[in-house]
Structure formats: structure tokens, C-alpha cells
């Protein structure tokens, strides 16, 4: 029965060819896969697969270079914006993106993030904020919420000793070098469509050479948060979104 249905004319959805066929290592329920897909779809739709160079971070998405069928470089932890700067400076006509987690972008790589954005490097930074270090097993991230438990904040994040959760996206928006800064999510069909539109806009802006675009995607980490995927999405809506409100933060003044 199923065989009869699998015909070209019945096709309603197809994986973009900008994604490879490698089996993803992400945990079931994780947002990374969706974020990868929409970014790949944008590259596909813009027809820029051969002009795009990506930079993978250190974090759960360290193997992103296996999944995007574009040329990719794997950067050291936190250094992706510097690596991307190097690439875009020698290839000013190409599309360059980084794909980074919160530990990578907002802890060890804060300096690189701030300075790339302040110089207005013409790159796209896709920033996945899951409030935790997923890769290394659930330690506190710069974006871990107050009171939120992690393996290095076992009694909950104590602001007095561990500092405040960092809204780096708002910070970047204040820099003269940033051009388009927005915060999205990928946990519902509607939000996926919106996030994809934002990434597309940001990619298109790269051609204008007007500055850095940063798209934050607030995402879940059900493994690290020790929840089921459904619980994690609910928890994210109830706890992450109030502190990291979705929407555009800096839009180009036309």
C-alpha cells in the first residue's frame, strides 16, 4: 500500500539538497536539526550553495559540517566569528555564516562575537541559545536562567556568585556594526516559518555589505534539561521566552 503512494506526483515535501544524507547525531527532540534545515533551505532557495562558506563551532553542532552540503570550516571553541572574518575578508563576494551555541558564542567567544559585530563583518551569525552546555553534559551556560539547575549550578544558578544570564543579542544590537538582529524559535510550525524568513532576510542583507546579521534561535535541550521533548518545549515557552522575548531587536533603517 505504502509503495503505491510513493510516486513523484504525490510528493509534498522534500529534503533540501543543501543537506547531506548523513544521519544526524542530535538527540530526538533537539532544535538543532530544524535550525540546520531552514538555514540549508534558505541557501537552496537563494541558489548560493556554491558561494556559501560555513563555520561550525565547538558544541553539539560541532559536526554541522557533516550536515550542510556547503564548504565548511570547523573553528576552535568560540572563535567562529574570527574564522568567518578571515574567510569573508579574503572572499568579499561570498556568503559566510557561523552557527554557534551559547557557550561558544557568549562565553568563551564573547570577545570574538563582540568585535566581529562591532567591526560590522558582513557575515551571518546563527546563534542557538539552549541555556546550557549540551555537548559536555549539561553544565551552566552564560544564558542559563536564574535559579536554573545544571551540573555546575546544582542548586540553581545563583546570580550573586555565578553572574547574570547574558542577553548577548541585545548587546550586539547596540553595536554600530550590527545591521539586523532578531530572536526567533523553531518549536512550532509557525515559528519555524518565521525563523526561516529571518534567516533569509539576513542572508540577503549580506550582499549589501551593511554589517553583521545575527539570528538568535531560542531552543531546547531536553537531554541537558532532563525533560522529555514535549516538557522541554513547554518549559522553554514558560521560562526562556519571558527572559529572552522573541522578535526583531534591530531592523535596518531603510
Amino acid at each position: 500500500m505504502a509503495e503505491n503512494l510513493i510516486k513523484p506526483e504525490n510528493l509534498v515535501y522534500k529534503k533540501t539538497s543543501v543537506m547531506t544524507d548523513k544521519v544526524m547525531h542530535y538527540c530526538p527532540g533537539c532544535g538543532h536539526g530544524t535550525a540546520h534545515r531552514i538555514l540549508a533551505e534558505v541557501i537552496d532557495e537563494m541558489g548560493i550553495q556554491n558561494e556559501t562558506i560555513g563555520v561550525a563551532p565547538v558544541g553539539c553542532s560541532v559536526l554541522a559540517y557533516n550536515y550542510f552540503d556547503v564548504d565548511m570550516t570547523e573553528a576552535a571553541h568560540g572563535r567562529a566569528p574570527a574564522v568567518a572574518t578571515g574567510i569573508r575578508r579574503v572572499f568579499p563576494e561570498k556568503y559566510v555564516f557561523t552557527y554557534q551555541g551559547d557557550g561558544d558564542l557568549a562565553a568563551i567567544g564573547t570577545a570574538e562575537t563582540i568585535h566581529a559585530c562591532n567591526r560590522g563583518e558582513n557575515i551571518l551569525i546563527v546563534f542557538i541559545n539552549n541555556g546550557i552546555y549540551g555537548m559536555t553534559g549539561g553544565q551552566m551556560a552564560p544564558t542559563t536562567l536564574e535559579g536554573m539547575k545544571s551540573s555546575t549550578s546544582p542548586r540553581g544558578r545563583d546570580i550573586k556568585t555565578m553572574g547574570n544570564p547574558l542577553k548577548i543579542t541585545e548587546l550586539v544590537a547596540q553595536l554600530p556594526g550590527s545591521y539586523f538582529v532578531t530572536r526567533q524559535s523553531v518549536h512550532t510550525p509557525g515559528s519555524v516559518r518565521k525563523a526561516k524568513r529571518a534567516i533569509k532576510k539576513a542572508m540577503e542583507y549580506q550582499k549589501l555589505n551593511k554589517g553583521t546579521c545575527l539570528v538568535e534561535i531560542v531552543s531546547n535541550c531536553n537531554s541537558g534539561w532532563k525533560m522529555t521533548p514535549v516538557q522541554a518545549n513547554k518549559w522553554m515557552e514558560e521560562n526562556m521566552f519571558p527572559f529572552f522575548p522573541l522578535g526583531d531587536i534591530k531592523v535596518p533603517q531603510e
Binding site: 559536555t136 553534559g137 553544565q139 555546575t152
Partner: peptide, 11 residues
């Protein structure tokens, strides 16, 4: 700063 295989120290 966390890194495998020694994150248990800070944890």
C-alpha cells in the same frame, strides 16, 4: 571551564 574528560572536577 568545562571540557571532557575532566568536567567532573568543577561539577
Amino acid at each position: 571551564y568545562p571540557i571532557t574528560p575532566q568536567s567532573e572536577v568543577i561539577e
